[in-house]
Every structure is written in structure tokens, then in C-alpha cells.
Amino acid sequence: MMQEINRLLISQDMRVTAWTIVAFVVVYFLTIFIKNFYELFGFAPSKCWLDAFYLWTLVTGIFVSRNIIFLLVGLVALFIIGRTFEPLWGRYPFFRFIVVEGMAVNLGITIIISLLYLFGATSLIRSDFSGVGPLIFSSIVALKLHYPTRPVVSSIPALQWFTYNDLPFCLLILSIPFIFVEYLRFIFFDAFVSLFVAWGYLRFWQLEEEITPLPSIDVEANNNEAHVNLMDDFSFSSLFPSPIRPLLTMPASLIRKIEDWIHRRHRLQNAPATEIGVTNIETQLDGVANAPAAVPIIDTAQLDNPQTNQDEVPLLLPTNTSLSEPSLTSEFTSTSSEDFKLGLSLLNAQEQGLPSSSSDALLEN
């Protein structure tokens, strides 16, 4: 184990994993030799608002181990998680995953336990939830995203049907009995909250940075794995088995609407602004970019002053846009309403083949 840690310390691809393992070991010894260290940095819901206001424990709690057994379990889990995802995502996204997921899961646990406390379940508010549990269960959801068709136990042919796509929900079901064991209640809450928090993080944050799911680092397994569809194969209902998905129609449709709204906002924010010759335009006319030709709008200032610079670019409108629509006046804020109406009248007179005397009459009016 120590040789692997030394190798990771000089590895560019797994540096975050190595230093995270070192941080776990250092924090554990600090809890032994420094008095009240565990009280200051260990996580319990009551420390965030009831007994104290130690909000930093939402993050530091994932680095604090209760005893040597939990420390060893955490080190092995971190090594496996880091070896799987840090080369896949990169150093910064993996470090963000550790910090954001740990904080978000602990915050979710605090909210749920606090609500239970307000309704009379007072025994959970001071329970110890420190440990690497949020990262373990969150990484299982990430395995579902990137390796949905890979068997969990590939060495046993009889279990080839059990894939990572089914693993998160199965672990949630298996964690339910732990809620009746006082010392192990944190396992259920870690699994329950991590399932939904990790899905939200990966779905709305991690995947926004990935055009397509990243391929497997295992070349042989990658040949048999299908690409994940971002909208369907990792939807909210995909967290649950097929037989119970019809029961989730209403929440799943609501979450899908939220997904569509977020993606529309994301596309609008990243879309380049289109300049069509007018300043201070807040909205863009449909079809302007694909207009085949354009019609100049005549400015009365140019009619009064024939010496106007001919190099100035006239204001352009698409020919397939109806000039009689009143909504167009709100699009071109740099032209006054009177001049705009006058220009429309002159164009209509020219299109109808009226004599120039009619145009002069419009100018005089």
C-alpha cells in the first residue's frame, strides 16, 4: 500500500488521489494527539445550527475518520475511486467532485435530520456522520454513468446480468436495515442522500462540460460498452428499476421540465450575439440569420441632406419579414417611431409604382 502511495505522489494523473489519502492519514493522527480536534472538525447535524455554527464541518467531516477501521476502509475506497475517475475526469474535476459532493451530501443530511428533529425525532440530530461515505456512494452513481453495461462481478458468469446500472439502487435497498443500528445509521443516510445529490451534480454540472460521456479507460471493456445518452440513459427515472418507473411519472416529468429549462438557459447564455446593424438589440428576429436578401430603410436625414456619406451601412431588414408588423418597432431602438413609419410609407409607395410626387407629398406631411 505504501509503495502505491509513493508511486501516486509522483504521478501527474493521480496527484489529487495521493494527496487526499495523505490528508486522511494526517487528519486521523491529529484527532488522536490534539484535544477537541474531532469536536471541531467532525461532522454532526447539530454542529451546523443547534449546538454550534461550525459550517466548515460540512467539508472537513469527510476527511475525519472515527477509528482505525474506518480509516483503512476510507483509504482503500479513495484509492479505488481515484484510480477510476481522476485519469478519466482530470485533476481539477476530480478534486471538485470530492469537495462539492462531500459538502452537498452533508448539507442534505443536515436538512433531513433537522426536519426530523423538528417533528420529534431528536435522537439523530447529534449522531456522528463523519467519514468518506458520501464519496463512496457518490462514486457508485458515477460508475453508473460511465460504465452502465459493465458487470459488477465480471469473473462470475452467473452474475453477468448485474451491472453498474443497477448498483446504486441495490445499495440503497441494502442500506435500509442499518437505520435500526444506532452506530451505523449514517450508512443509510449517506446512501440515500448521495444517490440524488450525485445524480444532480453529474447530470447538471459534470455533464455540462462533456459533449459526450468519456470513454472507458479499460480498452477491452470499452469495445463492448455503448455510449450513454445524456438525456435518457441518465435521467432521474433511470435511478430506479424498470418495474417501479411508472410510479415516478409525475416527479420524473417535473424534473425533465427543469432539465429542459436549464439546457435552454445554458444554450442561450453560450450563444454568440448576432449583430444585424443596430445597436442595443436585446432580442433577435427569427429568420434574420437565414434571410436571403435585405431591404434598406430610408432615413429622412439622408433625404434632407443628399451629401450624406455613402459609405455608411444602411439598416437592413430581411425581405421575407413583413414590414407591417408593429412588433418590429421594438427591435430597432435606434430609429424613432415617426421616421420608421415614414420609411415604411416611402417603401410601400415605391413598391406600388406611385409617382415621385406622392413621395414628395409624404415628406411634406
Rank of each mutant, 00 (worst) to 15 (best):
L71K: 04
N36G: 10
L78Y: 00
F41R: 01
I34Y: 06
V59M: 06
T17N: 06
L55Q: 06
R96G: 13
F79H: 14
K47R: 15
V16R: 04
F43Q: 13
S65R: 01
D51H: 04
L30Y: 03
N67Q: 08
Y28H: 14
F79A: 12
Y38C: 02
F79V: 09
R91F: 02
L75V: 06
L88A: 11
Y28Q: 13
F95I: 02
L72N: 07
F33E: 05
W49D: 13
L55K: 03
S65F: 00
F70E: 12
A77R: 03
L55C: 03
I21Y: 00
F70N: 14
A77H: 03
E86F: 00
V99H: 01
F97Y: 12
V25T: 10
W89D: 10
F24D: 08
Y54F: 07
A52Y: 09
P87Y: 08
Y54T: 04
V73G: 03
A52H: 14
F85Q: 11
K35V: 11
F43T: 10
S46C: 10
L40F: 02
Y92M: 13
F70S: 13
A44V: 01
V22C: 13
I32A: 12
T17I: 03
T57F: 00
F97R: 08
W49H: 15
P45G: 10
F85E: 13
T84S: 15
A18V: 02
G61V: 02
I80Y: 13
W49V: 08
T84Q: 15
G42K: 00
Y92C: 03
V27Y: 07
F95C: 08
W19P: 00
G61C: 06
I32F: 02
F94L: 06
D51Q: 10
K47Y: 11
R66S: 12
L88R: 15
A18E: 05
P87C: 09
V22Q: 06
G42W: 01
I32M: 15
I81L: 14
L72G: 05
A23I: 05
G90N: 14
I69F: 09
V59D: 06
K47S: 11
A52S: 15
L55F: 06
I34A: 11
W89T: 11
A23M: 07
N67K: 06
V16G: 04
K35L: 10
I32E: 15
A52V: 02
A77S: 15
V26M: 04
A23P: 01
A44Y: 02
R66F: 03
I62F: 01
T17L: 05
L88I: 08
I21M: 13
L71S: 08
L50Y: 05
T57N: 07
F53C: 08
F63Q: 10
F97H: 11
I68N: 09
L50E: 13
Y92K: 15
I81Q: 14
F63W: 07
R66K: 12
I34T: 13
P45F: 02
R66A: 11
V26I: 13
I68V: 12
T57I: 02
F37K: 08
G61W: 01
W19L: 05
V59W: 04
F41K: 01
L55P: 02
V27I: 15
T60Y: 00
